[in-house]
Design a protein around this nucleic acid. Structure first.
Length: 136
DNA sequence: GCCCTGACGTGAA
DNA sequence: ATTCACGCCAGGG
């Protein structure tokens, strides 16, 4: 036997390693994963690798989304529903196939969360008595 | 080896 | 918010 074995590509394992390290309840974009794996601009490779991951592997593939927080699968498709289900199961809110990265993003800037942005509803209702009705 | 496709990303119109 | 054009790169035909 010379070289008929599988492909232990370092990039491949690096990507899986990063994905496996995404905390529960958090999500990351393909681009982020690629970057953290030392492969900047290789977002597509991340998608390809995930597609090759055999079922049964302990890889939280569902925590990986597009850079805009949208699920990569076509809405309504099998994978789409499965991903929504899994994310919801971890407490990640998914609205219209989309996740609020400022809230669940792994790479999110903590300032955005700790500083608490001004009430966006100040335009419609000029603060009646309940300043915050959503978030938290 | 060339061409097309794709679990992507970003900037511009 | 949407659509388009490009950039990137591994596979498959």
């Amino acid at each position: 036997m010379k070289s008929v074995d599988t492909k232990p590509s370092p990039d491949h394992s690096a990507i899986l390693r990063v994905i496996r390290s995404i905390p529960v309840g958090c999500v990351a974009s393909y681009g982020e994963v690629a970057e953290r794996a030392g492969l900047p601009r290789r977002a597509r490779l991340v998608g390809r690798v995930l597609g090759e991951v055999p079922p049964g592997e302990e890889v939280p593939w569902y925590r990986v989304l597009r850079s805009n927080g949208r699920i990569a699968f076509a809405p309504g498709s099998r994978g789409f529903r499965e991903q929504v289900r899994r994310l919801s199961g971890e407490g990640v809110l998914v609205v219209s196939g989309r996740v609020d990265l400022a809230r669940h993003g792994w790479d999110r800037n903590l300032d955005a969360v700790l500083w608490a942005p001004p009430a966006p509803s100040a335009k419609k209702s000029a603060a009646k008595k309940n300043v915050s009705s959503k978030k938290r």
